[in-house]
Design a protein around this nucleic acid. Structure first.
Lengths: 138, 138
DNA sequence: CGCAATCATATGCAGCTGCTTATGATCCAC
DNA sequence: GTGGATCATAAGCAGCTGCATATGATTGCG
């Protein structure tokens, strides 16, 4: 064990702040909240059955996420339809509009990330992304 | 540009939560808050002149950090002495006790991190750490 | 059928955060 | 000497978060 590197959290924290700061105007330009974008992303990528399961999937609080879902629905970015097999459940789906918005936001974010990552050697970058992917469980 | 990876923030966020969850009991065992540990770490590694500069260095709010400094001082982990050259300033320094506590916490955290990172191939791990270091500005 | 579990929803509580404003003391350039 | 800047400190405000509780409706098992 060497003492030559900071704790992971100490490195992740400022990076996280930089990313959030960069994403904020991108999200604002599309009138989407950060949790709203997380919801759109989840729905765009994987089917999910219940709102609670969605909340768990994106690390959100199942109660707090309701407001976000309300906003997304009002903006016609998602739809909620009753599940014919279980009257407690409202099935979630992303609309075509929601898909477009999500992908536009992601494009902006990706452009920023690519620029950020371009300062890192390609071999390290690949290792970084692979590690990050493995460590984040996705 | 490929679509085959999640946004950085989407990967960093769960990793950050995992790290925080792991650190929480370690910090509690030493009766140190997370900001307290960040302060101790900063003081243990680099001299800093003013409290405001310390706050900036660790990404904390200069007003909010006062309470943390009060606690650390009460626990005799840091000392605040008036700067003879500038009566507005209180110079900060870590005590020997503070140094011991900080290093004990770091040891616990490092053990966890090493275990976590052991699931990643060594080459990727090195690339990960180098990238993280470069991207976090430290 | 009864009951525990689950769903969506709402909300309270405590804590934290970012930002701001304010205070009194001190510093320093003009 | 004056005034703006800086320091430490305190606290307001609004927003967010994690967790818990509660409600009414629904489901599914014993």
């Amino acid at each position: 064990m060497t003492d030559d590197r900071p704790d992971l959290a100490a490195m992740l924290y400022p990076l996280m702040r930089v990313l959030i700061a960069a994403e904020t105007p991108i999200l604002a330009a599309h009138d989407v909240s950060m949790w709203g974008y997380a919801v759109l992303t989840a729905l765009d990528e994987t089917p999910v059955r219940t709102q609670a399961a969605l909340a768990a999937a994106i690390g959100a609080d199942k109660s707090r996420i309701i407001g976000t879902l309300d906003e997304l629905q009002a903006a016609e970015l998602i739809e909620r339809t009753p599940d014919p097999d279980d009257r407690r459940v409202r099935l979630l789906s992303i609309t075509a509009k929601g898909r477009r918005v999500r992908r536009a936001v992601r494009k902006g974010i990706r452009a920023y990330e690519d620029e950020l990552l371009s300062s890192v050697p390609a071999a390290d970058r690949a290792g970084f992304l692979r590690s990050l992917r493995a460590l984040s469980g996705r």
